[in-house]
Write a protein that binds this DNA or RNA. Structure first.
Length: 295
DNA sequence: CGGGACTCCTGCCAGC
DNA sequence: TGCTGGCAGGAGTCCC
């Protein structure tokens, strides 16, 4: 699940608990995630204070006072859970029972891969059944190989119809595929691309190049930019979308899945024309759209 | 080079 | 009930 709105939701949920706190213990499951754990990861976290949290595309960044930055990616099924310390003991019990499956209520679950204990006794747990997520540490996060080539933030000033026109010009792939390319725009995933294309009334099958025949902005591209921004803002406001895995750090679900117009709605009537939503496969991934409303 | 297929891993669901 | 196959939000790599 985790696309930009879900990562933003998790980051905003973690920030008040992590910011300004010192990590006093870091415990790892030892199981390999998408990438190997950074060398001496626990030791490099322990004793460090978290100065600031931010998000870039689908990556979460924790700047430490050691000069390093934790880079975290949720993959497909990663989630963070905060168990408040003594100050929030009530919440800790309620959540502990749910997320910690041991008899005492504080044993890590089978898919818990990182447990941080902070200097106020808050615990922060990273859980990831599919293990497509990862952690890394870097002195310069922006220069990290996974971040260096990213396109603009879709909610930032650099993401414009002019940018899309340049990125799409000469590109034969379908616009759906192009928007999933993190070098074109950073942070979109399958769900929000489907939803944004529907709102912009652009067919996911159309070649990207056909939307930018001259390499210059067009009204359609402007519509697409607006649709992407709107969808992302609405999804962030709703706390992201919970399909099966995403949760906020307090365990509650996001709500944007209630507002999907096409995603996961194959066969249901289109809200615009009433004809059935269609599902096709593009680059091996499901695409949902209305063949009538989207051209 | 662009673009598609394949890969990592587990959970879940539909269908038999 | 229990099995099997297909599918799932990401993104790097490998080929043509």
């Amino acid at each position: 699940m985790p696309e930009l709105p879900e990562v933003e939701t998790v980051m905003r949920g973690l920030a008040p608990h992590l910011r300004g706190r010192r990590v006093i213990a870091a415990r790892l499951s030892g199981k390999r995630l998408r990438l190997p754990w950074p060398r001496d990861f626990a030791a490099r976290l322990e004793g460090a204070r978290v100065e600031a949290l931010s998000r870039r595309a689908k990556f979460m960044l924790w700047r430490l006072d050691s000069g390093e930055t934790v880079i975290s990616h949720l993959g497909m099924s990663g989630r963070f859970t905060v168990l408040p310390g003594p100050g929030g003991a009530q919440g800790a019990r309620a959540l502990g029972e749910f997320y910690f499956h041991g008899p005492a209520g504080d044993q890590p679950g089978p898919h818990d891969h990182l447990v941080l204990t902070l200097d106020d006794q808050t615990r922060v747990i990273y859980t990831d059944p599919r293990r497509f997520g990862f952690f890394d540490l870097a002195a310069d996060a922006a220069a990290h190989p996974m971040l260096a080539g990213l396109g603009p933030e879709p909610l930032g000033d650099e993401f414009t119809a002019a940018h899309l026109a340049r990125a799409f010009h000469g590109r034969r792939a379908p616009v759906k595929t192009a928007l999933l390319d993190q070098k074109v725009v950073a942070g979109l995933g399958n769900i929000y691309v489907c939803e944004a294309l529907f709102r912009a009334r652009v067919s996911p099958r159309r070649a990207a190049a056909a939307l930018a025949p001259t390499g210059r902005p067009t009204p359609r591209l402007a519509r697409l930019v607006t649709a992407i921004r709107e969808i992302l803002r609405e999804a962030i406001r709703a706390g992201g979308s919970t399909i099966s895995d995403h949760a906020r750090v307090d365990g509650s679900s996001g709500g944007f899945q209630q507002h999907f117009s096409v995603y996961g709605r194959e066969g249901e009537p289109c809200g615009g024309c009433g004809r059935p939503i269609r599902r096709i496969t593009q680059s091996g991934r499901g695409t949902f759209y209305c063949p009538r409303c989207q051209r």
